[in-house]
């Protein structure tokens, strides 16, 4: 149990670190990283909950949750990095699309 508890606490600390990074950093890339650390913290916490003791088999459901979470996290990160990338080439007032406004 102590190992699982250690993982849970580490996960929670990572979660808090990520949130702090998100609040106190203004650089967009750093924020994207902070969000990833937050997500990793949560995933670590969830996986730690699967541990059911020395002799018992681990619970598969948390793994399923984390896998889905990772996929969503990866997509969100990819989208974020893409947006940050495009933002660098479009300056305010630029309107390269011909859309209204």
């Amino acid at each position: 149990m102590t190992v699982a508890l250690l993982y849970s606490i580490t996960g929670f600390l990572l979660f808090l670190m990520g949130i702090c990074g998100l609040i106190f950093r203004s650089s967009l890339i750093r924020r994207a990283l902070a969000l990833n650390i937050t997500a990793s913290g949560i995933f670590l916490f969830i996986v730690a909950q699967a541990y059911k003791g020395e002799s018992a088999l681990p619970d598969p459901v948390p793994h399923g949750l984390v896998l889905t979470g990772i996929v969503i996290g990866a997509s969100a990160t990819a989208l974020m990095i893409y947006l940050i990338g495009v933002l660098r080439y479009v300056s305010p007032g630029d309107n390269d699309s011909g859309e209204e406004e």
């Binding site: 979660f15 969000l35 947006l83 479009v90 305010p92 630029d94 390269d96 859309e99």
Partner: peptide
Amino acid sequence: PRTHESLKAALNYLVIAFLGSL
């Protein structure tokens, strides 16, 4: 629309929505 304004809005939206879902 890929204007500066809309990209910034999208990025803010994504960061906050991702945080909310986490």
